[in-house]
Design a protein around this nucleic acid. Structure first.
Lengths: 152, 152
DNA sequence: ATTGACTATCAATTATGTTGACTATACCGT
DNA sequence: ACGGTATAGTCAACATAATTGATAGTCAAT
């Protein structure tokens, strides 16, 4: 059997994650576009995915998203330009600034959370609620293992 | 509870896939470097992951990897430069060229397949053989569902 | 033989990611 | 309080990657 055929029939973890990631990303940003947020792009996800309503620090976003802090900086510039966030001084640390979502930002956060929930609900419906929960549980464990942490 | 905390405790499908993908990718290319292939980079995966020993067409690689054919072109340029593949005329279609792995390319393909198998074996050992198989089965199904929906 | 689709490639542009350095502030041990 | 060291965010230069539009050759079906 050809290697490409084998990889098609039994895709490995790298292939599965990349396919699902990019396809989910595509659906996410196309749908966001239809729901009033046409200018946000996948890379902005690094900020919007983890942003807290109370505001977040760039460094925290960098850690959570796995991006360099310089990247977060330019993302925040862009998102500020688009009206999704603004920078405020952090009252607890005068070196830091809080990145705080505007009303538009809050809307986008809740819309994107809803889109992701829809996607997952759709899959759970087909593969079975219980099977999907178990899938997520193992996936979480695999992610922690792969990232080098220990989660029991 | 803060949104970022919630996303940390119950990461969604987008977060899980991106974390695992980039972490697997990092391990893959660091290990490939240690095993005699230091010059290949993640993006070359689009070609090397699907390449057949008998040779593959650029268009097929583009479809399988989800990359534009222009990208495949530059990847093949680089891989040819590094001695991993060469272009041969396709005997069945004079428009097309077959991208054929050299001996070095074949070695890299088998090493990378082995690295990925090691990674998955490691996870299977921890979460349980049976649970991991089930995880992969649901993942495959979710991937097919997602690609069918998000309009590949 | 002509038409429309497909293969690969070129070239130009835009987008994204990486690296090193720098200022201001905080933290810690003394 | 003082010094050294670590951290937060930003600048700027550079390196890599992805997107788009166009082209010449080939194919496949009239």
């Amino acid at each position: 059997m050809r290697r490409s055929t084998r990889k098609e029939e039994s895709p490995d973890l790298g292939i599965l994650t990349s396919r699902v990631l990019f396809s989910v990303q595509k659906e996410m940003f196309e749908t966001l576009g239809l729901r009033g947020h046409p200018r946000v792009r996948p890379r902005h996800g690094a900020v919007m995915a983890y942003l807290d309503a109370e505001g977040s620090r760039a460094t925290d976003l960098a850690h959570q998203s796995g991006q360099h802090k310089q990247v977060i900086g330019t993302l925040v510039d862009e998102l500020a330009e688009l009206g999704y966030v603004r920078r405020e001084p952090d009252p607890e640390d005068r070196r830091a600034k809080l990145i705080v979502p505007t009303d538009l930002g809050l809307d986008m956060m809740s819309v994107s959370d809803a889109i992701m929930a829809d996607i997952e609900r759709r899959h759970a419906l087909v593969v079975g609620e219980q099977a999907y929960d178990e899938f997520k549980r193992i996936f979480h464990k695999v992610a922690d293992l792969q990232l080098g942490r220990g989660k029991d």
